[in-house]
Measured scan of single mutants.
Amino acid sequence: GSMEQGFLPKGWEVRHAPNGRPFFIDHNTKTTTWEDPRLKIPA
Rank of each mutant, 00 (worst) to 15 (best):
G1E: 14
G1M: 12
G1I: 13
S2T: 13
S2F: 12
S2I: 12
M3A: 12
M3G: 13
E4D: 13
E4L: 12
E4R: 10
E4P: 11
Q5T: 14
Q5A: 12
Q5K: 12
Q5M: 15
Q5R: 10
Q5C: 15
Q5I: 14
G6E: 09
G6T: 11
G6L: 13
G6I: 09
F7Q: 15
L8R: 01
L8F: 06
L8M: 08
P9E: 06
K10D: 14
K10A: 15
K10P: 15
K10G: 09
K10L: 11
G11C: 05
G11D: 04
G11E: 04
W12M: 04
W12V: 05
W12H: 03
W12N: 02
E13H: 01
E13V: 01
E13I: 02
V14D: 01
V14S: 03
V14L: 08
R15I: 08
R15A: 09
R15D: 04
R15S: 07
R15Y: 06
H16M: 15
P18G: 07
P18H: 07
P18F: 06
P18N: 07
N19G: 08
N19E: 02
N19A: 01
N19M: 00
G20W: 00
G20Y: 01
R21T: 10
R21N: 08
P22I: 14
P22S: 07
F23Q: 09
F23H: 06
F23M: 10
F23I: 15
F23T: 07
F24Y: 13
F24K: 00
F24D: 06
F24L: 02
F24G: 01
I25Q: 04
I25E: 06
I25A: 03
D26L: 00
D26T: 00
H27Y: 07
N28W: 06
N28E: 07
N28C: 15
N28D: 06
T29H: 05
T29L: 05
T29D: 04
K30G: 15
K30T: 06
T31S: 08
T31Y: 06
T31L: 07
T31A: 06
T31H: 07
T32R: 11
T33V: 06
T33A: 03
T33I: 05
W34E: 05
W34I: 03
W34C: 08
W34G: 03
E35D: 14
E35P: 02
E35W: 13
E35G: 05
E35Y: 14
D36G: 01
D36R: 00
D36Y: 00
P37C: 12
R38P: 02
R38W: 06
L39E: 08
L39S: 10
L39T: 13
L39V: 09
K40S: 14
K40D: 09
K40W: 09
K40I: 12
K40A: 14
K40T: 12
I41Y: 12
I41S: 12
P42A: 13
P42R: 10
P42D: 11
P42N: 12
P42H: 12
A43R: 10
A43C: 15
